[in-house]
């Protein structure tokens, strides 16, 4: 299942599974690959999903994986929420009166 691409809000892209993959490798360094594999197993995902429900499931599993992954999950959650708020604000300012 693929979720349609969400427009950028003020230049902010909505986080994707690829962003989560990149973030896990970034914060775990040389154990990034094994941490990602553990995360996918915990979330029961393959890593090839592109829909938002899968991303949210991944972030939830990330929260419980280990303390560093929890912070990584929090960062992704903040970016998701920021995008939602800003996209709404962006739409409101562009809507005809």
């Amino acid at each position: 299942m693929t979720t349609p691409a969400t427009p950028d809000a003020y230049g902010l892209s909505r986080p994707t599974m690829a962003d989560a993959h990149e973030a896990m490798h970034r914060v775990h360094g040389h154990t990034g690959r094994s941490s990602w594999a553990r995360l996918l197993a915990a979330a029961k995902l393959t890593g090839t999903e592109t829909d938002e429900p899968s991303l949210l499931r991944l972030i939830e599993a990330m929260t419980h994986l280990d303390p560093v992954s929890r912070l990584c999950a929090q960062a992704l959650r903040i970016r998701l929420t920021s995008h939602t708020h800003l996209a709404a604000a962006h739409l409101a300012t562009r809507s005809p009166a």
């Binding site: 973030a23 912070l71 960062a75 903040i78 970016r79 929420t81």
Partner: peptide
């Protein structure tokens, strides 16, 4: 954090709870 600022103490910002 790696890609976001986590606010852990605040004054003057709207309290949006967990959102």
């Amino acid at each position: 954090l790696d890609s976001a600022q986590l606010i852990i103490g605040r004054h003057g910002l709207p309290d949006t709870g967990d959102e």
